[in-house]
Nucleic acid binder design. Structure first.
Lengths: 153, 153
DNA sequence: GTGTATGCAAACAATTTGCACGGAC
DNA sequence: GTCCGTGCAAATTGTTTGCATACAC
């Protein structure tokens, strides 16, 4: 799907969602959505705040937190916790569910998919008789072939 | 393994660890270890603080955080993030590595093991040429057979 | 006796809340 | 015109830090 189409589709989805839930279609909400979908990377609230402040549109942190809740609720973004006490997010429309490899030295994140995780979820569903809503799988790794192997204490 | 043996073993392990790293064997450190191993549940720092305050031994939060770092370092406890911006911990000696099912309605945690997760880790190691240090897999579920199905908005 | 560990309180960082004003409806 | 959503600042929560005292060594 083209970048342009994605932007257009997510606006449509968000708009319908707001309508359905009797929430107002404010310019701030759409500016936040657009900023998030202008970049596929993971982000935290402060990064989003700074990017928007530096660019065209500036919103308060309170509005960012508020809007992020709405975007989570309509599945346009996903929330992650990669071990720090801080939420990170990513746009989720147009990319399939995936998991994350975290380089413990740099914090860098690589995405991967493995079909076996779906099998595990199926087993959970059958064994416990529950609805599996979602999951998070993070693999923490170290790249051994690095020129500087950090300090060794 | 008996509860008593576990208590005794972990004290021995912690003691050796402190010795090896030239850290002092303070009564606070052993009181914290004992409190953690007196109960197999997950806990957060505040719960631990309150439990110890109510009981025999009272330590400051600063000491709790400090000691928890040591216990993580010698693998006597594990740290988890279950979606909240708060660390939770669990005693890890004498139980094997496992993953977690989280009931999104109650926050209740069930542990499970699935050997396929190890296969996924092996694949990651081979495919990316990395050392896999650890992982965290959380499955968020809802129990459909509940008398009160919460509010439905 | 030395110097690390402790307790306390202040500092911090991420997030939430309260409130007055502005704009979507 | 209503009243929800916004921006701001203050409040809260989880965690860290600074410093004087206490105690493990």
């Amino acid at each position: 799907m083209e970048e342009k189409d994605i932007q257009s589709n997510v606006k449509q989805i968000f708009s319908s969602y707001l309508e359905k839930h009797s929430h107002r279609k404010t310019p701030e909400r759409f500016a936040i959505l657009e900023e998030i979908y202008s970049n596929p990377d993971h982000f935290d609230v402060d990064e989003l705040y700074t990017k928007m402040k530096d660019k065209k549109y500036r919103v308060s942190r309170a509005t960012l937190y508020n809007t992020i809740e709405l975007l989570l609720d309509c599945n346009l973004i996903r929330r992650h916790q990669f071990g720090k006490n801080m939420s990170q997010f990513e746009a989720s429309y147009g990319n399939k569910q995936h998991d994350h490899i975290i380089d413990v030295d740099t914090g860098k994140i690589v995405e991967f998919c493995d079909p076996r995780i779906q099998l595990i979820k199926n087993t959970i569903k059958e064994h416990f008789g529950v609805d599996v809503l979602h999951h998070s799988l993070n693999i923490f790794v170290r790249f051994p072939n690095k020129e500087n192997s950090e300090n060794s204490n």
